[in-house]
């Protein structure tokens, strides 16, 4: 039987790639008997789906409180003025 460490790798790989038949069988067999891996796999699916969804909506995944600093604004303004005038 696969170890939990090996199964954690498959649970993650599953989000990015299709597993081979052998990998799938090993994975399913293990999680049918191991609650932690079953929970882990379900949980990383949720985070994955949430992030993908945020990305698809073109959102930045950053809180609104994150802002361009005053210094950076001034620096960028100077750089833009140099080119446009």
């Amino acid at each position: 039987m696969l170890t939990c460490k090996e199964v954690s790798l498959l649970a993650s790989k599953k989000l990015d790639e299709k597993l081979t038949l052998g990998e799938r069988v090993g994975f399913l067999l293990h999680i049918s008997m191991c609650g932690v891996c079953r929970r882990y796999s379900k949980e990383i699916n949720k985070v994955h789906a949430l992030m993908l969804n945020v990305g698809k909506n073109g959102k930045s995944f950053m809180s609104e409180s994150v802002k361009l600093s005053k210094e950076a604004r001034e620096r960028i303004k100077v750089a833009l003025d140099k080119v446009s005038h």
């Binding site: 930045s60 995944f61 950053m62 609104e64 994150v66 802002k67 361009l68 950076a72 604004r73 960028i76 303004k77 833009l80």
Partner: peptide
């Protein structure tokens, strides 16, 4: 107007 309009949006996208 680009910096006031889009500065924060672009920065958030970038820093993320």
């Amino acid at each position: 107007q680009w910096i006031p309009l889009y500065g924060d949006i672009l920065y958030r996208y970038s820093i993320g």
